[in-house]
Design a protein around this nucleic acid. Structure first.
Lengths: 124, 124
DNA sequence: GTTTACCTTTACGTTAACGTTAAGTTGTCT
DNA sequence: AGACAACTTAACGTTAACGTAAAGGTAAAC
């Protein structure tokens, strides 16, 4: 019963509001590796998930190289090559960066709140 | 008693671990406008705060243009030009973006947690 | 069987955010 | 006075992440 739905490149492009060119570019950078039927690309649920992760990374200002590192962490092939300890360490690094970003966000939100209050006061 | 400390460009560069070139570039893009003594730049607390904001934006993947918009919101000169309502609306847009980013972070942290658990299990 | 729609590869173009010389100015120490 | 350190402007170089033709393959629709 595994969801066997597949996608064409423009299916994914429409779904995530990016261009096919961008998706092909991510592949050329090693972030995706879709199946082929002849020369046409076929995307599965796995690719769908990865693309979602890539775009989440983009919204957070991560470079494709950084997102690729994250993806490699999740890759079961490489996972056995790399020593567990190194993977755990990389996970921790990613966590630290995310926590820094979260803190930056909280500060910005606070300042926005304060400024809004100032303005509403000034509006009378 | 206002803190009258000033900074040279390399003071700020050292403090925030960026190059003087970067700081000058932010100025050329309209994000900073330090005082001048002859042709030398003198930075005050105001500039210090703005630079901190710019770099926070960078860590969140904001473009300089976007950070400039934020800065303009805080600028008391422009503040009177623009209608309050428009400013309040822009504040709300920034808030929404930050909240989206915060959500992206929570998701990524969750997935990292899960993966770490998987690995620790596999290590046995 | 040919138009239509969507796919492909290849290659050159573009923008943001600086980096990197190069060449000159200014203040200060010796 | 001469050297040094830190500042300046100007201009060209670089990288990431695609955008944008150009030229062609393929399968369904008319």
């Amino acid at each position: 019963m595994s969801t066997k739905r597949t996608y064409t490149i423009s299916d994914l492009a429409a779904e995530f509001d990016v261009t096919p060119r961008a998706i092909r570019f991510y592949e050329s950078e090693g972030l995706l590796s879709p199946e082929r039927a002849g020369q046409k690309r076929i995307y599965h649920q796995k690719d769908y998930v990865l693309l979602k992760l890539i775009l989440r990374g983009k919204r957070l200002g991560w470079s494709l190289a950084e997102s690729k590192q994250l993806i490699d962490l999740y890759d079961p092939e490489q996972q056995n090559q790399e020593q567990y300890q190194r993977v755990l360490q990389k996970i921790e690094e990613s966590r630290l960066r995310l926590q820094q970003q979260r803190q930056d966000i909280e500060l910005m939100l606070l300042e926005l709140d304060e400024h809004q209050t100032r303005i509403e006061h000034a509006m009378n």
